[in-house]
Amino acid sequence: MNMSDTHSPASMPGLALGPVLYHWPREVVLDFYAMVADSPAEIVYLGETVCAKRRSLRRDDWLALARELAAAGKEVVFSSLALIEADSELRSLRRLCEDDAFTIEANDMAAVSILEERGRPFVAGATLNLYHPRSIAVLARAGMRRWVMPLELSRRAFADIRAALPETVASEVFAFGRLPLAYSARCFTARAHDLPKDDCQLRCLDDPDGLLLKTREGDDFLVLNGIQTQSAHSFNLMAAEVAGPPPADVLRLSPQSRHMPAILAAFDDWRHGRAGGGELAARLEDLLPSGSCNGYWLGGAGMQRLPTPAAQA
Protein backbone atom coordinates (compact mmCIF):
# COMPACT_ATOMS: atom_id res chain seq x y z
CA MET A 1 0.00 0.00 0.00
CA ASN A 2 1.98 2.94 -1.24
CA MET A 3 0.82 6.35 -0.07
CA SER A 4 0.61 7.57 -3.65
CA ASP A 5 -1.80 4.81 -4.68
CA THR A 6 -5.38 5.77 -5.21
CA HIS A 7 -8.01 3.51 -3.71
CA SER A 8 -9.67 0.97 -5.93
CA PRO A 9 -12.94 -0.57 -4.75
CA ALA A 10 -12.34 -4.22 -5.59
CA SER A 11 -8.86 -4.74 -4.24
CA MET A 12 -8.05 -6.74 -1.13
CA PRO A 13 -7.47 -4.53 1.90
CA GLY A 14 -3.97 -4.03 3.23
CA LEU A 15 -3.18 -5.04 6.80
CA ALA A 16 -1.68 -2.43 9.09
CA LEU A 17 -0.30 -3.00 12.53
CA GLY A 18 -1.16 -0.01 14.69
CA PRO A 19 1.33 1.53 17.10
CA VAL A 20 1.86 -0.34 20.38
CA LEU A 21 -0.38 1.61 22.76
CA TYR A 22 1.10 0.09 25.93
CA HIS A 23 4.40 0.55 27.68
CA TRP A 24 6.53 -2.49 27.00
CA PRO A 25 10.18 -2.99 27.97
CA ARG A 26 12.74 -2.47 25.25
CA GLU A 27 13.50 -6.17 24.59
CA VAL A 28 9.79 -6.96 24.34
CA VAL A 29 9.30 -4.21 21.78
CA LEU A 30 12.27 -5.38 19.72
CA ASP A 31 11.13 -9.03 19.83
CA PHE A 32 7.65 -7.94 18.82
CA TYR A 33 8.84 -6.08 15.73
CA ALA A 34 11.14 -8.95 14.77
CA MET A 35 7.96 -11.02 14.57
CA VAL A 36 6.18 -8.24 12.65
CA ALA A 37 8.92 -8.13 10.02
CA ASP A 38 7.89 -11.66 8.95
CA SER A 39 4.15 -11.10 9.30
CA PRO A 40 1.57 -10.54 6.55
CA ALA A 41 1.09 -6.87 7.60
CA GLU A 42 2.11 -4.47 4.83
CA ILE A 43 2.00 -1.33 6.97
CA VAL A 44 3.58 -0.84 10.38
CA TYR A 45 2.92 2.16 12.60
CA LEU A 46 5.73 2.94 15.03
CA GLY A 47 6.30 5.33 17.90
CA GLU A 48 4.74 6.42 21.18
CA THR A 49 1.25 7.92 20.94
CA VAL A 50 0.12 7.90 24.57
CA CYS A 51 2.74 9.29 26.96
CA ALA A 52 5.99 11.13 26.29
CA LYS A 53 7.49 9.75 29.49
CA ARG A 54 7.59 6.25 28.06
CA ARG A 55 11.07 5.88 26.63
CA SER A 56 11.84 2.18 26.30
CA LEU A 57 13.15 3.09 22.89
CA ARG A 58 15.06 6.24 22.02
CA ARG A 59 14.59 8.13 18.81
CA ASP A 60 17.55 6.41 17.18
CA ASP A 61 16.20 2.99 18.21
CA TRP A 62 12.91 3.76 16.53
CA LEU A 63 14.66 4.94 13.37
CA ALA A 64 16.81 1.81 13.26
CA LEU A 65 13.69 -0.31 13.69
CA ALA A 66 11.96 1.65 10.94
CA ARG A 67 14.83 1.04 8.53
CA GLU A 68 14.81 -2.68 9.31
CA LEU A 69 11.08 -2.94 8.73
CA ALA A 70 11.33 -0.92 5.53
CA ALA A 71 14.09 -3.27 4.36
CA ALA A 72 11.69 -6.14 5.07
CA GLY A 73 9.24 -4.50 2.64
CA LYS A 74 6.96 -2.77 5.11
CA GLU A 75 5.48 0.68 4.69
CA VAL A 76 6.56 2.37 7.92
CA VAL A 77 4.54 5.22 9.42
CA PHE A 78 5.47 7.12 12.56
CA SER A 79 2.46 7.90 14.77
CA SER A 80 2.49 11.20 16.61
CA LEU A 81 1.54 11.79 20.24
CA ALA A 82 -2.25 12.15 20.55
CA LEU A 83 -2.27 14.82 23.27
CA ILE A 84 0.27 17.64 23.16
CA GLU A 85 0.60 19.59 26.42
CA ALA A 86 4.20 20.44 27.26
CA ASP A 87 6.64 22.45 25.18
CA SER A 88 9.00 19.50 25.11
CA GLU A 89 6.27 17.41 23.47
CA LEU A 90 5.77 20.04 20.78
CA ARG A 91 9.53 20.11 20.15
CA SER A 92 9.62 16.31 19.75
CA LEU A 93 6.68 16.55 17.39
CA ARG A 94 8.48 19.12 15.24
CA ARG A 95 11.56 16.92 15.10
CA LEU A 96 9.43 13.95 14.07
CA CYS A 97 7.69 15.94 11.33
CA GLU A 98 10.90 17.41 9.99
CA ASP A 99 12.47 14.05 9.24
CA ASP A 100 11.38 13.32 5.69
CA ALA A 101 12.44 9.67 5.69
CA PHE A 102 9.11 8.25 6.87
CA THR A 103 5.44 9.12 6.62
CA ILE A 104 3.72 10.51 9.72
CA GLU A 105 0.34 9.64 11.17
CA ALA A 106 -0.94 12.95 12.56
CA ASN A 107 -2.95 12.36 15.73
CA ASP A 108 -3.39 16.01 16.65
CA MET A 109 -3.96 19.17 14.61
CA ALA A 110 -0.56 20.50 15.67
CA ALA A 111 1.02 17.70 13.64
CA VAL A 112 -1.28 18.48 10.71
CA SER A 113 -0.29 22.13 10.87
CA ILE A 114 3.43 21.37 10.82
CA LEU A 115 3.16 18.75 8.06
CA GLU A 116 0.99 20.97 5.89
CA GLU A 117 3.47 23.82 6.13
CA ARG A 118 6.26 21.47 5.16
CA GLY A 119 4.21 20.19 2.23
CA ARG A 120 4.38 16.60 3.46
CA PRO A 121 1.62 14.10 2.79
CA PHE A 122 0.33 12.37 5.93
CA VAL A 123 -2.02 9.79 7.41
CA ALA A 124 -4.82 11.39 9.46
CA GLY A 125 -5.32 9.43 12.68
CA ALA A 126 -8.71 8.62 14.21
CA THR A 127 -8.38 11.31 16.90
CA LEU A 128 -8.54 14.06 14.26
CA ASN A 129 -12.31 13.53 14.28
CA LEU A 130 -12.96 13.47 10.55
CA TYR A 131 -16.58 12.34 10.57
CA HIS A 132 -17.84 13.40 7.14
CA PRO A 133 -16.82 14.23 3.56
CA ARG A 134 -16.47 17.98 3.97
CA SER A 135 -14.04 17.73 6.86
CA ILE A 136 -12.14 15.05 4.95
CA ALA A 137 -11.95 17.36 1.93
CA VAL A 138 -10.34 20.06 4.09
CA LEU A 139 -7.69 17.68 5.36
CA ALA A 140 -7.12 16.29 1.85
CA ARG A 141 -6.24 19.84 0.76
CA ALA A 142 -3.83 20.00 3.69
CA GLY A 143 -2.02 16.87 2.50
CA MET A 144 -3.92 13.88 3.94
CA ARG A 145 -3.36 10.77 1.83
CA ARG A 146 -5.00 8.22 4.12
CA TRP A 147 -7.95 8.78 6.42
CA VAL A 148 -8.41 6.67 9.55
CA MET A 149 -12.08 6.47 10.46
CA PRO A 150 -13.14 7.71 13.93
CA LEU A 151 -13.71 4.62 16.07
CA GLU A 152 -17.34 5.32 16.91
CA LEU A 153 -18.55 5.45 13.29
CA SER A 154 -20.60 2.64 11.74
CA ARG A 155 -20.35 0.70 8.49
CA ARG A 156 -23.09 2.93 7.14
CA ALA A 157 -21.13 6.11 7.90
CA PHE A 158 -18.09 4.43 6.36
CA ALA A 159 -20.02 3.68 3.17
CA ASP A 160 -21.29 7.28 2.96
CA ILE A 161 -17.78 8.64 3.34
CA ARG A 162 -16.14 6.15 1.07
CA ALA A 163 -18.50 7.06 -1.73
CA ALA A 164 -17.36 10.66 -1.45
CA LEU A 165 -13.68 10.10 -0.74
CA PRO A 166 -11.30 12.14 -2.92
CA GLU A 167 -9.27 10.10 -5.42
CA THR A 168 -6.06 10.92 -3.63
CA VAL A 169 -7.22 9.67 -0.22
CA ALA A 170 -7.21 6.04 0.93
CA SER A 171 -9.38 4.71 3.78
CA GLU A 172 -8.37 2.83 6.90
CA VAL A 173 -10.59 1.35 9.60
CA PHE A 174 -9.77 0.07 13.07
CA ALA A 175 -10.39 -3.66 12.70
CA PHE A 176 -9.02 -5.25 15.83
CA GLY A 177 -8.04 -4.56 19.41
CA ARG A 178 -9.01 -2.80 22.60
CA LEU A 179 -10.48 0.53 21.54
CA PRO A 180 -8.61 3.66 22.63
CA LEU A 181 -11.69 5.59 23.78
CA ALA A 182 -10.49 8.66 25.69
CA TYR A 183 -7.52 10.84 26.57
CA SER A 184 -6.97 12.92 29.69
CA ALA A 185 -4.39 15.18 31.30
CA ARG A 186 -4.50 12.79 34.23
CA CYS A 187 -2.71 9.48 34.42
CA PHE A 188 -5.19 6.89 35.65
CA THR A 189 -2.53 4.22 36.01
CA ALA A 190 -0.59 6.46 38.40
CA ARG A 191 -3.87 7.24 40.18
CA ALA A 192 -4.59 3.52 40.61
CA HIS A 193 -1.17 3.18 42.27
CA ASP A 194 -1.86 6.25 44.38
CA LEU A 195 1.07 8.07 42.77
CA PRO A 196 1.17 11.59 41.32
CA LYS A 197 1.65 11.79 37.54
CA ASP A 198 4.95 13.61 38.02
CA ASP A 199 6.28 10.66 40.01
CA CYS A 200 4.45 7.82 38.29
CA GLN A 201 7.44 5.41 38.51
CA LEU A 202 6.34 4.18 35.07
CA ARG A 203 3.97 1.72 36.68
CA CYS A 204 2.30 1.22 33.30
CA LEU A 205 5.20 -1.17 32.63
CA ASP A 206 3.43 -3.63 34.96
CA ASP A 207 0.50 -4.11 32.59
CA PRO A 208 1.36 -5.22 29.05
CA ASP A 209 -2.30 -4.96 28.01
CA GLY A 210 -3.28 -2.08 30.30
CA LEU A 211 -4.81 -2.10 33.77
CA LEU A 212 -8.24 -3.68 33.91
CA LEU A 213 -11.13 -1.70 35.39
CA LYS A 214 -14.17 -3.71 36.46
CA THR A 215 -17.64 -2.69 37.51
CA ARG A 216 -18.64 -3.35 41.11
CA GLU A 217 -20.36 -6.48 39.82
CA GLY A 218 -17.00 -7.78 38.60
CA ASP A 219 -17.59 -7.28 34.87
CA ASP A 220 -14.60 -6.32 32.74
CA PHE A 221 -15.44 -2.81 31.56
CA LEU A 222 -12.52 -0.53 30.67
CA VAL A 223 -8.74 -0.55 30.63
CA LEU A 224 -6.53 2.17 32.08
CA ASN A 225 -3.47 2.82 29.98
CA GLY A 226 -1.79 5.89 31.42
CA ILE A 227 -3.66 8.96 30.21
CA GLN A 228 -5.63 6.81 27.78
CA THR A 229 -8.78 4.86 28.60
CA GLN A 230 -9.58 1.84 26.46
CA SER A 231 -12.40 -0.64 26.14
CA ALA A 232 -11.82 -3.89 28.00
CA HIS A 233 -13.39 -5.80 25.13
CA SER A 234 -11.43 -6.07 21.92
CA PHE A 235 -13.17 -4.76 18.85
CA ASN A 236 -13.20 -7.43 16.16
CA LEU A 237 -14.39 -6.45 12.70
CA MET A 238 -14.49 -10.11 11.64
CA ALA A 239 -17.26 -10.59 14.19
CA ALA A 240 -19.28 -7.92 12.38
CA GLU A 241 -18.65 -8.78 8.72
CA VAL A 242 -18.96 -12.52 8.23
CA ALA A 243 -18.99 -12.35 4.44
CA GLY A 244 -15.58 -10.74 4.15
CA PRO A 245 -13.76 -7.48 4.75
CA PRO A 246 -15.56 -4.20 3.97
CA PRO A 247 -14.21 -2.17 1.03
CA ALA A 248 -11.61 -0.32 3.09
CA ASP A 249 -8.12 0.13 1.69
CA VAL A 250 -6.47 -0.73 4.99
CA LEU A 251 -7.50 -2.66 8.11
CA ARG A 252 -5.72 -1.67 11.31
CA LEU A 253 -4.93 -4.25 13.98
CA SER A 254 -3.98 -2.79 17.33
CA PRO A 255 -1.29 -4.84 19.10
CA GLN A 256 -1.92 -6.84 22.26
CA SER A 257 0.89 -8.47 24.20
CA ARG A 258 0.14 -12.07 23.24
CA HIS A 259 -1.07 -14.08 20.24
CA MET A 260 -0.47 -11.35 17.65
CA PRO A 261 0.92 -13.82 15.07
CA ALA A 262 -2.29 -15.85 15.25
CA ILE A 263 -4.40 -12.72 15.03
CA LEU A 264 -2.48 -11.43 12.01
CA ALA A 265 -2.78 -14.83 10.34
CA ALA A 266 -6.54 -14.89 10.94
CA PHE A 267 -7.03 -11.47 9.34
CA ASP A 268 -4.82 -12.54 6.45
CA ASP A 269 -7.00 -15.63 5.94
CA TRP A 270 -10.10 -13.46 6.10
CA ARG A 271 -9.00 -10.99 3.46
CA HIS A 272 -7.90 -13.81 1.16
CA GLY A 273 -11.27 -15.50 1.57
CA ARG A 274 -9.67 -18.61 3.02
CA ALA A 275 -12.13 -18.65 5.94
CA GLY A 276 -15.26 -16.80 7.04
CA GLY A 277 -15.29 -13.97 9.54
CA GLY A 278 -17.64 -15.75 11.94
CA GLU A 279 -15.49 -18.85 12.11
CA LEU A 280 -12.24 -16.87 12.45
CA ALA A 281 -13.70 -14.54 15.08
CA ALA A 282 -14.84 -17.53 17.12
CA ARG A 283 -11.34 -18.99 16.90
CA LEU A 284 -9.79 -15.73 18.17
CA GLU A 285 -12.22 -15.34 21.04
CA ASP A 286 -10.09 -17.31 23.51
CA LEU A 287 -7.02 -15.23 22.64
CA LEU A 288 -8.56 -11.95 23.80
CA PRO A 289 -7.95 -10.57 27.31
CA SER A 290 -11.65 -9.74 27.92
CA GLY A 291 -13.70 -11.00 24.98
CA SER A 292 -14.88 -9.11 21.93
CA CYS A 293 -17.28 -6.37 20.84
CA ASN A 294 -18.50 -5.13 17.46
CA GLY A 295 -21.20 -2.58 18.34
CA TYR A 296 -19.71 0.52 16.76
CA TRP A 297 -19.42 -0.98 13.30
CA LEU A 298 -23.00 -2.26 13.39
CA GLY A 299 -24.41 1.07 14.55
CA GLY A 300 -24.94 0.21 18.22
CA ALA A 301 -23.18 0.99 21.49
CA GLY A 302 -19.49 0.24 21.12
CA MET A 303 -19.42 -2.35 23.92
CA GLN A 304 -22.14 -4.51 22.38
CA ARG A 305 -21.57 -7.80 20.67
CA LEU A 306 -24.37 -7.70 18.13
CA PRO A 307 -25.44 -10.47 15.78
CA THR A 308 -24.05 -9.84 12.31
CA PRO A 309 -26.53 -8.79 9.62
CA ALA A 310 -26.06 -12.10 7.79
CA ALA A 311 -26.74 -14.05 10.95
CA GLN A 312 -29.89 -12.00 11.49
CA ALA A 313 -31.19 -12.76 7.99
Binding site: T127, N129, A182, A185, L222, G302
Partner: peptide, 21 residues
Protein backbone atom coordinates in the same frame (compact mmCIF):
# COMPACT_ATOMS: atom_id res chain seq x y z
CA UNK B 1 -14.53 16.98 32.23
CA UNK B 2 -11.58 14.82 33.19
CA UNK B 3 -11.09 13.77 29.58
CA UNK B 4 -9.95 16.02 26.76
CA UNK B 5 -13.12 17.40 25.23
CA UNK B 6 -13.68 16.04 21.73
CA UNK B 7 -11.45 13.08 22.56
CA UNK B 8 -13.80 11.01 24.67
CA UNK B 9 -15.93 8.19 23.28
CA UNK B 10 -16.79 6.57 26.62
CA UNK B 11 -20.43 7.58 26.31
CA UNK B 12 -20.95 6.08 22.86
CA UNK B 13 -19.05 2.98 23.92
CA UNK B 14 -21.70 2.37 26.59
CA UNK B 15 -24.82 3.97 25.11
CA UNK B 16 -24.22 4.55 21.40
CA UNK B 17 -24.40 8.33 21.86
CA UNK B 18 -21.45 10.62 22.51
CA UNK B 19 -20.70 14.34 22.77
CA UNK B 20 -19.06 14.26 19.34
CA UNK B 21 -21.86 12.58 17.45
Amino acid sequence: CVMVEGRCLLSSYVTGQSPNT
